[in-house]
Structure formats: structure tokens, C-alpha cells
């Protein structure tokens, strides 16, 4: 597992998609700081600014993350390097786990850098309003939603493995999941009992629910089920796949 992960890191160093995804995501807080400094005539509120960053990051990061894992898997099939990997030999289950691990590694790095830049930006723009509890809340919210989003999107790797060299079906699935994730913030109270069971809707819902809500547990359970199912399906698909 260690060797497989290390080789994924080696590949990551020259992976353009990883770099582009990283730059696109971390640009969001930077651009919003520049916008607030140079373009906004009316001074905006701290919470409003944070919400805008949060909304955009939650839109862009999953898309970039989807691009990253789709391209990572599709390249292995397209360039047929998967044959060299399996004959090295690398256990098929280990290969899937190494992909998931490096995807998580990339995701966490991008998330942390984005969080840091967001906090830095908020300190530049709203120095007097930003308290330590506000910073903690921002970190907590970003991290919680970021991690839940990553887990809910794990079935993407199964689709990527199933589609082999095809890029579009996986990307369309990613966009559909992102759409659902965004729609999650618009779910009405009446639809809440049903929406909680949809993992991608549940990501945003979980951010709005109080800690003691029973729906929060349903949301988290559905997201974890999605992640678990994604991993199991990916391993099963890859283990039975003829290369």
C-alpha cells in the first residue's frame, strides 16, 4: 500500500489537472478579496463575504475534485499504464485504495490552503469583526462540509473505473452530484425527511441542522453509506474487470 501510494504522489507532482484544480479552488478567496478591495463600492458584511466564499468553494472544489479523480483513473486506462501496474504486481484492492488515498490527500491539501486563504482574506477585509470564535466556526464549517462532500462523492471512483477511458459519463455524474449538493441548501422543511436520505443533498442540509437534530444523524449516515458503497463498488468493479 505504501509503495502504491508513494507512486501516486510521484505521478501527482507532474499532474496538470491536480495543479489546475488546486489553482482554480484557491483562487476563489483570493479573487473575492480583490473584488471586495477594488470593485465593491458598498462595503459588504463579513458574514455575507464568508457565505459567498463558502458557496463558491463548495461549488468549485467538488467539480475540481471530480475532474481530478476522473482524469487520474481515465489516464491509467487510456495510456494502458494499468497493465504495467497490475503486472508489477499491485493488488487490485490496493490500487483502488491508493487512488482514493491520493485523491483524499489532494482534496485535504486544497481544502486547507483554501481555508487558510479565506481566513487571511477575512482578516484583511474585516479585521475588527473577525474573532477567534468566528475563525473556529469558519474552519469547522469548511472542514465538515468539505469532508462530507468528499465522502459523498466517493461513488465517482466507481463510475470512473466502470467507464474506463470515457471521461464524460463520470464528469456528468460529478456535475449532477454538485447540482444536488447546491440544491441541498434550498430544501424546504417539508422535504427534509426525504432529502436527508439523499447523500448529496444531505451535505448542505447537515450544515444547517442543529447538533441535536435527528435529521443530522440521518444525513451523516446517508453520506457515510454513499462513501462506503462507492468504495465497495469500486473494489468489486476493479477486481472483476478484464484489462
Amino acid at each position: 500500500m505504501n509503495n502504491a501510494f508513494q507512486t501516486e504522489i510521484l505521478k501527482l507532482k507532474k499532474n496538470k489537472m491536480a495543479f489546475i484544480g488546486f489553482v482554480f479552488t484557491i483562487c476563489i478567496p483570493v479573487l473575492l478579496v480583490l473584488k471586495a478591495v477594488f470593485l465593491d463600492k458598498i462595503k459588504i458584511d463579513y458574514h455575507e463575504w464568508i457565505q459567498t466564499v463558502f458557496m463558491l468553494v463548495n461549488l468549485v472544489l467538488p467539480i475540481m475534485s471530480g475532474f481530478f479523480i476522473t482524469q487520474s483513473m481515465q489516464k491509467e486506462y487510456g495510456e494502458k499504464t494499468i497493465i504495467n501496474i497490475i503486472t508489477a504486481p499491485v493488488n487490485r484492492k490496493v490500487f483502488v485504495f491508493s487512488k482514493i488515498t491520493v485523491w483524499f490527500f489532494w482534496y485535504v491539501v486544497v481544502m486547507i490552503v483554501t481555508e487558510c486563504l479565506t481566513i487571511l482574506g477575512s482578516l484583511i477585509l474585516f479585521h475588527s469583526q473577525v474573532t477567534s470564535s468566528a475563525i473556529c466556526f469558519t474552519i469547522q464549517l469548511f472542514t465538515k462540509i468539505g469532508l462530507l462532500s468528499y465522502i459523498a462523492f466517493l461513488p465517482v471512483i466507481w463510475i470512473a473505473i466502470r467507464q474506463r477511458t470515457l471521461f464524460y459519463p463520470t464528469m456528468l455524474s460529478v456535475l449532477f452530484f454538485v447540482l444536488l449538493q447546491c440544491a441541498g441548501s434550498q430544501v424546504s422543511e417539508e422535504l427534509l425527511p426525504v432529502a436527508c436520505f439523499v447523500p448529496w443533498l444531505a451535505i448542505q442540509i447537515s450544515a444547517m441542522l442543529p447538533a441535536n437534530s435527528q435529521y443530522l444523524y440521518i444525513c451523516i449516515a446517508s453520506i457515510l453509506c454513499s462513501g462506503l458503497l462507492g468504495i465497495i463498488l469500486a473494489i468489486f468493479e476493479f477486481r472483476t474487470q478484464d484489462l
Binding site: K11, K14, N15, K16, K75, E79, K80, T81, I82, I83, N84, T87
Partner: peptide, 12 residues
């Protein structure tokens, strides 16, 4: 082994 065509990462 070599199976079909030699397969390597194009950007490396």
C-alpha cells in the same frame, strides 16, 4: 512483461 503496446505515463 510487455502486453500490447508499451504503456507509460506520457507526461513523465
Amino acid at each position: 512483461s510487455i502486453i500490447e503496446t508499451p504503456s507509460f505515463y506520457s507526461y513523465l
